[in-house]
Design a protein around this nucleic acid. Sequence first.
DNA 1: ATGCCTCCCCTTGGGAGA
Length: 261
Amino acid sequence: MRLATWNVNGLRARIDYIDHWIKHRQPDVVGLQELKTPDDVFPHEHFRDLGYQALVHGQKSWNGVAILAKHPMTLKQQGLPEQDDFGARLITAEITTPKGTAFDFTTVYCPNGKTLEHADFTRKLDWYKSLHTYWQQHAVAKHLICGDFNIVPEAIDGWRGEKGEGSIFYTQEERQHLQAFVDLGLTDLFRHYYPDSQEFSWWDYRGGAFHRKHGLRIDFLLATAPLVDATSEVIIDRDYRRKIDDLTASDHAPVYADLDI
DNA sequence: ATGCCTCCCCTTGGGAGA
């Protein structure tokens, strides 16, 4: 079972690029973020032709999340309670694998926060509080939450290293909210399997950041213990941050894990 | 310090992204 997360930076602008990745990697379930697409024009038939059912929580211009699945899937939640006015940023489904294992899959597009001084930074922290509450109220043994968290967990996860400490994405306040999920029993799959590796999942479009290795690891797969135990591999798919022919990549790479469930 | 690039919008420049 290959479970993936990907901030695609515009679903409609990325659709041909996404096809390449899906055909080469053959994921079973994909959490997508930053669709920038209203629900009424989501290309359901396009993904159906590739073998996927889609559940969508979109909006015009900004934000938007979706889950693609090759296996039976039912919607459990659209939108983070108490945070509707901060955009379409959360969707949860229950998925049943061919082996008959049921698990919950949540994907999130966490707020950016803009700057430490901006009102959106406080709202970002509040949004995390609501996510924490949501998580506690939807506790199931097998649950994976993935997405763009817009937090650099440790100095190793940002190209600026220790020099970044204290600036937005690297603050203790933001990291405490990530730690709260660890305290609730979730594990960052990539860091669990690669304790010392510096790999990034996002690179700015500007200034040749990808080639200069100026990136951040902000896209995670967080899993409960039974799913951690079932995981055999975790990949940050940086090849898919590169241009394919004339197709522009997202500024985020896909991240996926293979699980025996 | 700012822009770099790319997306979106009842577009043609401006806001947002991280």
